[in-house]
């Protein structure tokens, strides 16, 4: 479980996150949603520790990250997997080497065991075997996301962060990636935080959603609660399209 309490973050005197408090539960797909520029990426990067916060607490199962020394933060990060918006695969390494990278860095297993683990992870994300020895530039965007997920889960993380996992993907591939994240979260009992403004993802996998608006946490609930939410900003954001307005009416 990750618990954020009274988190404030500013850049050059301008407050981007104002008094955010939220709980991200274990074994659930926790989603941070909001418009572009609302502060959701800053919130995610603050939780991971890529941004230094002004004040507040970020507790990873009781361990408050802002109080930690860099050495301890590095140790904590070994329990974290992350899927970046652009996949962030290493260009100079093959698919297999990308997945093996965290294992080679931190695992004490033999090379054979590492290869087996990497193959298991790649197989888990349904990546065809012929692509294992290709470079990231030689595979499609959807496949790159799968490799990034495989790399993120290779060390059995307790926490999984996904920044805009569907960015740049077609609707069908987006659904596959969403399902994969959902399944992995439940299968390995991971605390997953997904940062998204894709409404399909929100409705499909959002078991615990927080809505950020102008740096404030404006609403929280589940994907079922969202249809009956009274928050005007949330409704403007989620049900902006005619299609979703009709979906909402049907659900109500």
């Amino acid at each position: 479980m990750i618990k954020v309490t009274n988190l404030f973050k500013s850049f050059d005197g301008e407050e981007v996150l104002k008094d955010i408090s939220a709980v991200f539960e274990t074994g659930k797909c926790n989603m941070i949603i909001g418009q572009s520029g609302s502060g959701k990426t800053v919130l995610m990067k603050s939780i991971i520790g890529l941004h230094r916060i002004d004040s507040g607490r970020i507790e990873y199962d009781g361990r408050n990250m802002p109080d930690m020394r860099m050495r301890d933060i590095r140790l904590l990060r070994r329990e974290v997997g992350m899927l970046f918006q652009g996949s962030a695969l290493f260009d100079s390494l093959t698919v297999m080497e990308n997945v093996m990278y965290p294992l080679e860095m931190f695992s004490s297993s033999t090379k054979k065991e590492m290869e087996l683990r990497a193959k298991f992870c790649l197989d888990r994300v349904n990546l065809p075997e012929h692509s294992y020895h290709l470079f990231p530039s030689e595979i499609s965007g959807g496949m790159q996301k799968r490799v990034a997920i495989a790399r993120a889960i290779s060390l059995n993380p307790k926490y999984l962060f996904c920044d805009e996992p569907n960015s740049g993907l077609d609707p069908k591939t987006s659904i596959i990636i969403d399902k994969l994240i959902f399944e992995i979260t439940h299968e390995f009992n991971i605390t997953t935080i997904v940062n998204s403004h894709d409404m399909n993802s929100v409705i499909e996998i959002g078991e615990n959603i927080i809505f950020i608006n102008n740096g404030l946490m404006a609403w929280s609930g589940t994907n079922k609660d969202i249809y009956g939410a009274k928050n005007e900003d949330l409704n403007d954001f989620v049900f902006a399209s005619e299609l979703y307005k009709q979906v909402k009416m049907i659900n109500q």
């Binding site: 933060i73 990060r77 974290v80 918006q85 652009g86 290493f90 931190f106």
Partner: peptide, 14 residues
């Protein structure tokens, strides 16, 4: 700029 360094940092690597 392609977040590869962030990815390394997130893994707990210097």
């Amino acid at each position: 700029i392609t977040e590869q360094i962030d990815a390394i940092e997130i893994m707990g690597v210097n």
